[in-house]
């Protein structure tokens, strides 16, 4: 049984000009011990779908799905109270901006301890010891003293380690990391990523890594989902995806990687931008930017078949 299973997820937000679907018809499956990467440009809905899984889409956003199960439990059927027993305990999330994701008014140790206390993860008198242990686990030196520091007294990398410590404090079965390294210096990025992978391996967690960095995907993921404009356009195992991308968008993303562009004078780019609220094209959402566009693509929305949402997938028998 999959750890997290989501079928036909849609997330809508009300705007001044009617409802806007930020995520549309997305399926996600994560198994225990698996690393799934969700890739896409900014605004592709990759974070929103995971926030929906965590139950963090606030009113007036609206979440619908045919299936949303965690470890066999129907998340949508749970009461708010019961869902909070899962969120933060069995499934936890690390966010993009470590500097603003921690409460500036409380010491970091207190913030980790709060997660432990609210889920009764350890006996009350063991909370402090556990906080120190967690901080050491995520590689924060001098943990006993650092736990009294405020977020503004620490660097971004250190704060992200605190966020990770907080997320793993109750030994979650699934960890979602939403672009955990984007806001950090390049030298720190690698350390944080390695930390996440080590923790994933040692705890046997499922890990969902949201990123826009194909390099990160290649290094870490077992399986990849590519998102575009709120839809999943392709899903494959990492090796297969890098060897033979099937959606033209994925192919274009991979072509834009410097490592793959040897011998070419300039790096290829994808023309145009991700469609916003007002300029959704009819038919395939990628058709204005696609090199293989046909009349069918302009008129009819493609459905997902064999892990790709495309009328003219690459490598398909013509």
């Amino acid at each position: 049984m999959a750890l997290l299973e989501i079928r036909n997820l849609a997330v809508e937000f009300g705007t001044a000009r009617g409802r806007f679907r930020a995520v549309d018809g997305v399926d996600v499956t994560v198994d225990a011990g698996e690393i799934l990467c969700i890739v896409g440009e900014s605004g592709s809905g990759k974070s929103v779908s995971m926030l929906a899984a965590m139950g963090l889409i606030a009113w007036p956003g609206r979440v619908t799905a045919d299936v949303m199960r965690f470890d066999g439990t129907d998340l949508l059927g749970l009461s708010a109270r019961d869902r909070r027993k899962v969120v933060g305990k069995d499934m936890a999330m690390v966010f993009q901006e470590p500097m603003t994701s921690l409460n500036p008014c409380y010491p970091i140790g207190w913030q980790i301890a709060e997660a432990l206390r609210v889920h009764n993860a350890v006996p009350r008198n063991k909370v402090q010891d556990r906080v120190v242990e967690l901080l050491e686990q995520v590689g924060i030196p001098d943990a006993g003293r650092r736990m009294n520091a405020f977020p503004h007294q620490m660097s971004g990398g250190m704060n992200q380690r605190v966020m990770i410590a907080m997320a793993i404090s109750c030994n979650p079965r699934l960890l979602i990391a939403d672009e955990p390294t984007t806001a950090l210096d390049v030298t720190i990025q690698k350390q944080i990523l390695d930390l996440l992978i080590d923790l994933q391996a040692s705890h046997g967690m499922g890990l969902v890594l949201i990123t826009h960095d194909m390099g990160v995907v290649a290094e870490t993921a077992h399986r990849v989902q590519v998102m575009y404009a709120g839809q999943m356009v392709e899903e494959q195992s990492t090796d297969a995806l890098f060897a033979a991308p099937r959606h033209p968008y994925t192919a274009a993303l991979l072509d834009a990687l410097p490592e793959r562009a040897h011998g070419r004078a300039r790096l290829p780019t994808i023309p145009g931008v991700v469609p916003g609220i007002d300029d959704r094209p009819t038919g395939c959402l990628f058709n204005p930017r696609c090199g293989l566009v046909t009349d069918l693509c302009r008129s009819t929305k493609p459905l997902t078949a064999n892990g790709v949402r495309c009328h003219t997938p690459l490598g398909a028998p013509a």
Binding site: T100, N103, M166
Partner: peptide, 26 residues
Amino acid sequence: NEDYVRTARAKGLSTPRVVIVHALRN
């Protein structure tokens, strides 16, 4: 709207606790 309020909710805290302890304090 701050990120840390989202973090607090992601911890599984109840709404009153998020509002009073995390939001109101700031």
